[in-house]
Simulated scan of single mutants.
Amino acid sequence: MTKTVILGVIGSDAHVVGITILEQALSAAGFDVVNLGVQSSQSEFVEAAEANDAEAVLVSSLYGHAKQDCEGFHQRIAEAGLDVTTYIGGNLAVGQDDFEETRSFFRKMGFDRVFDSETDPEDAIASLRADLDMRSTEREGQTVSA
């Protein structure tokens, strides 16, 4: 079964090259990709995830304002009743010196994985496959034991 992922650039960010490369890599890896493009709102991500029965939402931000753009994002996902894996990647903070601090911030915010702008798409795809496989296994276990 093909897994659907939502991909887009959040907020006022207009950087399109990274998500274009990621869209091509995800498609080549067998994912069904819904690319929202640039300057996407939180609502657009949530609505697309609902409409497409997505298993993951991948958020990109390169202009350094992801902290503000993603505030309340996971609350919207929860309010919509979605059970999706969430990733964020890019240049997430202005003057980003210590990426581990940035990673920690976004993990606390609710993202399952946080990538810097130098991450190879194949590494993100390998992580996504592993995370989605693990979630499928957990769901099957819950169904069996319920």
Rank of each mutant, 00 (worst) to 15 (best):
T119C: 10
A66H: 01
A78Y: 03
L58P: 02
E71R: 15
A124Q: 15
A126Q: 15
T85C: 03
L58V: 12
E118G: 12
V114M: 03
D98F: 14
E55A: 10
H74A: 12
F115W: 06
A80C: 02
L62R: 11
A56D: 09
E71T: 15
L58D: 03
A124D: 09
L62M: 15
G72D: 15
A51V: 01
T86K: 01
V57D: 04
Y87W: 13
E122D: 11
T85P: 00
S117T: 02
D97P: 00
P121V: 07
E100W: 03
Q68T: 11
E55M: 13
H74E: 09
V94G: 00
D112E: 13
H65L: 12
A54D: 02
S117G: 13
R113V: 00
A49N: 04
G95K: 11
A48G: 07
F105G: 01
A80N: 01
T85V: 14
E44F: 05
S61Y: 10
N91W: 14
F99M: 08
C70R: 04
S60C: 09
G110D: 04
T85K: 07
G81N: 04
L92A: 08
F106R: 02
F111C: 01
K67E: 08
A48N: 10
F115H: 06
A48L: 10
G110F: 02
G64V: 10
A49L: 05
F115P: 07
F105L: 07
E101D: 13
E50A: 06
D69S: 13
E50F: 08
A51K: 15
A80D: 06
G64R: 04
E101I: 02
A56H: 10
V114N: 02
E118Y: 11
D97T: 07
A126H: 13
V57I: 15
D97K: 12
L82Q: 06
F111I: 03
V94C: 05
K67S: 04
V57Q: 06
S104A: 05
E100V: 03
G89V: 03
I125H: 12
D69P: 04
D112N: 15
T86L: 05
E122H: 10
A49K: 05
A49E: 03
A80R: 03
M109H: 05
A124F: 15
D83K: 03
Y87A: 05
A124C: 11
A56C: 10
Q75P: 06
D120K: 12
S127A: 15
I125Q: 11
T86C: 14
G90N: 14
S61Q: 10
S43E: 13
F45Q: 04
T86M: 09
E101G: 00
R113G: 01
